[in-house]
């Protein structure tokens, strides 16, 4: 869950109310949702079990898992009210996530 901390936790109540944070991973979403709700992160979890969406977004890291399974490339994409991409960041090292301040700036610029 540490990889998801930061963004939701650093947005104010007002900022969180005005934006939907959607977390997409191959995990079944129930467990993630419970943990995030416990941490009051304000995320909505969607289960992309077969990576179909990650694939359509060009965000698959082939054979990255311990058993050779494909995994998503960690990425953050800001989509504006009209449904267009306004900012994105894709990790080159999976320990690294975008600075929440950069995401905030992108949201403020909408």
């Amino acid at each position: 869950m540490a990889e998801l901390q930061g963004l939701g936790a650093q947005l104010s109540e007002a900022e969180r109310a005005g934006v939907e944070i959607i977390a997409i991973s191959p995990d079944p979403s129930e467990r993630s949702q419970k943990m995030a709700d416990g941490l009051r992160l304000g995320y909505r979890f969607l289960a992309d079990t077969d990576l179909a969406v990650a694939r359509r977004y060009g965000l698959v890291h082939e054979r990255a898992g311990p058993d050779g399974q494909d995994l998503p490339r960690p990425a953050t994409v800001v989509v504006d009210r009209d449904g267009a991409v306004r900012w994105f960041s894709i990790s080159r090292n999976y320990q690294v996530r975008p600075d929440p301040e950069d995401v905030r700036r992108a949201l403020r610029a909408l």
Binding site: V19, P26, V77, V79
Partner: peptide, 17 residues
Amino acid sequence: DYRGRKPVVLVFYRGYW
């Protein structure tokens, strides 16, 4: 669903496999 309603931040992450 969110078009015309509110901005969305999509966070793709690896999960716990």
